[in-house]
Design a protein around this nucleic acid. Structure first.
Lengths: 235, 235
DNA sequence: CCTAAAACAATCAGTCTTGACTGTTTTTAT
DNA sequence: ATAAAAACAGTCAAGACTGATTGTTTTAGG
């Protein structure tokens, strides 16, 4: 599903040969790679990093082992590419979901729900698996760190683009966004051993109140200083 | 020789033999178990859950494999006991560290430093390894969940005992303590892929300001309503 | 002392994972 | 149409991990 996802990893090697027909095998190859990476992510989510074997991935993708080894000669390469794949998916999910934010009074509450929806997604757990594995895997760490850093930068840029104007200062916004970011990660981890999901919702409900109260005091402070009441943050 | 196959269903038939618990071998046995569990935790921290093999643990503990298998017949049992061992260690660390809290003005700041010290400890990463592994390991999940729940209860009880009186209400304290708890977990996870540790300290610095400001407003509110300025929370 | 049982030590067989190797089909270019 | 290259499929040997089995030492009790 969702074919046609051209990952930036496709090297632009076609120089002067097939200019117009668009190589069929290139498409097949890209589709195969995407299937394998999706299968890798699925395995990460379902059985964890340790039991995500190359055999399991190939079976999951409906691809022979030899075929997979053609695209990803080693497991490290497969996982490395899967990291980027996961990060791209999460960024896409985040950017796509912020589009439909209601501009009503429950704006901040919706943002929190949206953040939790994003952080409790399967891709989030795939990244958690990779992160924890990277802690004791030098090679995975080296390849994962820059990707996650890019991902964080994009997240915070998007946040600043959306909520930066509402914050009283750059410093405070920085602190607040980090707080929520860390908070979400903590929720993800602790949610693993939670049996009743209502606890998270209850906590989020309280968190919304906190954020709402904090934001209101800020907004009131701004209302008195600046008369510009517009807080539209279209993108 | 001694072809008598030891039926592993060793029933607890020794009824009146060793009445006195002053056995030397009991001590040796306990010490051996502790060494093995410590080694297990060390392995969890250093190489992660996946590569924590029974062979590695036995080598680490300086114990033969057969000896270890005598105490922990299967890996699942070893890990299960290690879970409890880790939880107990963390609770002990927490309880021990809260004893030396300075009662000065930097009280809350010290608390945050102390929490981070506890959450950034090796045992914390051991529990993270087990938690993430438990996500996709039913058996580990079943044994880990109650232990962590007990651990959380103890943490929050200690927190309530210390800071409960300072909070404006039960509900607000509940929310605040959870927030810090989740926040710490988020810091632990995201810290894995962080190269410069100053980022955490910078965030904690800002967090201290937030907490301090929030606490001050609460305290001021209480100062006007109740004249009882005593907030001693002896244990 | 001497026997029984527990603790401890060492090895082995079975299973699983990885990556290399060989063979087959499809696509591209001449 | 044909040769070259890429994609695809299957098999295999080496290594690792788990748990069982067998042998040795130490301790408790008669």
């Amino acid at each position: 599903m969702t074919l046609g996802v051209k990952t930036q990893t496709s090297a632009p090697q076609e120089a002067v040969t097939t200019e117009e027909p668009g190589g069929k095998q290139a498409e097949k190859s890209a589709a195969m790679r995407a299937r394998l990476l999706d299968a890798t992510v699925d395995c990460l989510v379902e059985v964890g990093y340790a039991r995500t074997t190359t055999t399991l991935v190939s079976e999951r993708a409906g691809v022979s082992r030899g075929a997979m080894l053609h695209h990803f000669p080693t497991k490290a390469l497969l996982v490395t590419q899967a990291v980027i794949h996961v990060a791209d998916k999460r960024i896409a999910e985040f950017r796509a979901s912020v589009k439909h934010l209601p501009a009503g009074s429950d704006f901040l509450a919706s943002v929190l729900d949206l953040m939790w929806a994003n952080f409790s997604s399967p891709t989030s757990y795939a990244m958690l698996e990779l992160t924890v594995a990277a802690r004791t895997d030098r090679e995975l760490f080296e390849s994962l760190q820059p990707v996650v850093r890019r991902y964080e930068t994009l997240i915070f840029d998007t946040a600043k683009e959306l909520f930066g104007p509402l914050a009283p200062s750059e410093k405070e916004f920085f602190q607040a966004s980090r707080t929520l970011y860390f908070l979400m990660h903590g929720l993800v981890v602790t949610d693993i051993l939670r049996d009743e999901p209502d606890e998270v919702q209850a906590f989020l409900k309280g968190l919304k109140k906190q954020v709402h109260a904090a934001a209101r005091s800020y907004v009131e402070a701004r209302m008195t200083s600046t008369s510009s009441g517009s807080h539209r943050t279209r993108n």
